[in-house]
Simulated assay, not measured.
Amino acid sequence: MSSLRLSLAIGDYDRIRPLVDGTVRIDGVDPVFSILDPEEIFFRAFRYADFDICELSLSSFTVKTANGDCPYVGIPVFPSRAFRHTSVYIRTDRGIARPEDLKDRRIGLPEYQLTANVWVRMILEEYGVHPSDVTWVRGGYEDPSREEKITLKLPPDVRLESLPPGATLSSALADGTIDAVVGPRAPSCFDRGHPQVGRLWPDPVGAASEWYGKHRMFPIMHILGVRKDVVEQHRYLPGALVKAFEEAKEVAMRKLSNTAATKVTLPFVEERLQQARQLMGHDFWSYGLEGNRHVLEAFLTAHHQQGLSSRKLAPEELFHPASLEAFKL
């Protein structure tokens, strides 16, 4: 009996590679992998539903699910997670020393609804900086033609402008047109060492560790999605995907934990792994709903409060029911 041939688009992550190289198989599936950057996957998924299975932006997926027009149903596999204290870049010559100093500033972002930006706005709220306290300026990091992927209806007190034609977030931050940039990538002016561009949190690892100690949340950025028409034809897929992606992650973690020879081209990997487990527990990159319910509930609440989702979703509404249960011996 031949396996089902399905397209699968996802980023190049160590926790995914055991699936790509065939070490771990998806029961009943012969996947055709496209290893792509998230921005390309999301654009093609939400504009054209190009892929049978793919990585999806949690925020974009939530917008579409709340509206009832999402072509995908979620699987509680989280290919990307990240603490977003690394995601705020500032002009260092504007008197911005604390999060509170962002009030009344002009803050650039690639898209208002990006998952990273939802989390950053959640963090800034803790310092009394509300979305209505700043002017948001939308534009591409390096390409001025980038557009918001999804149509939004924001609260009336949120000021959202666009950069002038030809300008980019990186150029605007470099020339001082804007005071800060929030987003999942560093603007190139920061990477090039611009003398007046730095991070809001000079020690983002320390700030994120303190934040985790307070909230016990490792922010989820992306989830796995399966096109609804594919699931309707092949009901076994959600369970098979959860099983395979869990196994692939376990293989990746075993390799990372093997200290005989470092698997990553970076010193002190073993020490950072130990530190992460001391702070966050052994399975710090967990899949599944129940272990991540508090993270998803916090995100979905903030997402709705920020005016991005038309209604507040419950975590269960994100996922196919068959992906939330598994057999037990």
Results as ranks from 00 to 15, higher is better:
185 R>C: 12
156 P>H: 07
151 T>V: 14
166 G>L: 05
181 V>G: 03
182 V>S: 11
179 D>L: 09
142 E>R: 03
177 T>H: 09
175 D>H: 11
169 L>W: 11
175 D>P: 03
140 G>E: 02
187 P>N: 02
153 K>D: 12
154 L>S: 04
143 D>K: 06
134 V>G: 05
150 I>E: 11
143 D>Q: 10
184 P>I: 12
186 A>S: 15
176 G>H: 11
166 G>D: 07
133 D>Y: 02
188 S>A: 14
174 A>S: 15
128 G>W: 12
172 A>Q: 05
138 R>P: 00
165 P>I: 07
170 S>I: 09
158 V>W: 15
148 E>D: 15
188 S>Y: 08
156 P>S: 12
151 T>S: 12
171 S>I: 05
136 W>I: 01
163 L>M: 03
139 G>M: 00
129 V>A: 10
171 S>W: 08
176 G>D: 10
134 V>R: 06
135 T>I: 07
137 V>N: 02
163 L>A: 05
130 H>C: 07
147 E>H: 08
150 I>Y: 09
145 S>W: 00
175 D>Q: 12
182 V>H: 06
174 A>E: 15
143 D>C: 00
140 G>M: 06
132 S>N: 09
153 K>P: 00
148 E>F: 08
149 K>H: 13
169 L>E: 06
140 G>H: 07
167 A>Y: 13
150 I>Q: 06
132 S>T: 09
130 H>G: 07
151 T>L: 12
176 G>T: 10
167 A>R: 15
156 P>F: 01
159 R>A: 12
171 S>D: 14
180 A>H: 09
174 A>P: 09
167 A>L: 01
183 G>E: 08
132 S>A: 15
